[in-house]
Design a protein around this nucleic acid. Structure first.
Length: 266
DNA sequence: AATGGGACCTGCGCGC
DNA sequence: TGCGCGCAGGTCCCAT
């Protein structure tokens, strides 16, 4: 569930806190989250290195290190980064040169930590589609026109457009008054234009409120984000639509729970 | 090309 | 109250 706004929120906080700090020691309590390389190599590659640049690509963090390697983190659904942490209940903790700890936590162990020589060669990153903020309304319209798939699963397809997940796809479609099961190519140019604007506005507002704390997401400090109270449809099945009082419905699309107002969204 | 299912994992909510 | 089942979600992978 951490989507673009949540990852961006944490990314900005990481820049303010750990940039320039050196990793003194890495403690791995659950090896499962470390992908591709051995724990020993992972530790050896990190210890002694300094955080040089902090980037975000869609929902991924890229922490570039002084030794040329990069720590690449995908939180998936329940991953958390906490700073300063206590180093106790985390799957992995990074002990820094200032005596503080960056904790990586993850209830469901789906998250992924990688230490890469070149993060640009990671397949998932290479195949990412453009982020909404990298597109123009025209490009977005042309991309949609070529697709017959349902609009909501399409918005969540990271190869098509990256950074949007289940929550913000639902919210943006509500704001654009578009039914989530509409074939993408059936949208009028006015609708695609509206949808594009609502996607960007929804993401920007969510960033402004530091993300949506549903499930496990918290900011780097451990505080929840404030955007949940502005949600119009997500996780509101059976509750009245904020615009028309019709009860919000939940259906399954592409195997994912999809919330919408059957009256407002056509 | 589009869709559907299972896998991964664990805590929680539900029904009985 | 207690227990067991199914579900949730991001992504990959396989099948149709």
């Amino acid at each position: 569930m951490p989507e673009l706004p949540e990852v961006e929120t944490i990314k900005r906080e990481l820049e303010k806190t750990i940039l320039g700090k050196r990793i003194v020691e890495v403690c791995v309590r659950n090896p499962k989250v470390i992908r591709q390389i051995s724990i020993e190599k992972f530790k050896r590659g990190l210890q002694g290195a300094t955080f040089k640049h902090i980037l975000r690509k869609a929902k991924m963090f890229i922490l570039e290190l002084s030794n040329g390697k990069s720590l690449v983190i995908h939180l998936r659904m329940t991953g958390q980064l906490i700073y300063p942490g206590d180093g106790k209940t985390s799957r992995v903790s990074f002990h820094l040169s200032n005596g503080k700890i960056l904790d990586f936590k993850d209830q469901r162990l789906f998250a992924e930590l990688r230490l890469l020589d070149n993060w640009r060669s990671l397949k998932f990153i290479r195949e990412l589609g453009p982020e909404p903020f990298e597109l123009t309304p025209d490009r977005f319209r042309h991309k949609l026109a070529a697709k017959k798939s349902k609009i909501k699963p399409l918005l969540m397809d990271q190869k098509f457009i990256s950074g949007i997940g289940n929550l913000y796809a639902a919210e943006a479609l509500f704001r654009a008054k578009i039914h989530p099961a509409r074939p993408a190519s059936s949208l009028s140019s006015k609708e695609t234009e509206g949808l594009f604007k609502e996607i960007k506005d929804t993401l920007s507002e969510a960033i402004r409120y530091k993300g949506s704390s549903v499930d496990q997401y918290v900011q780097l400090s451990g505080k929840p984000g404030d955007y949940v109270r502005y949600h119009k449809v997500y996780d509101r099945k059976g509750e009245p639509c904020r615009a028309c009082k019709t009860l919000i419905k939940r259906i399954s699309l592409g195997g994912r729970g999809t919330y919408f107002c059957p009256k407002c969204q056509r």
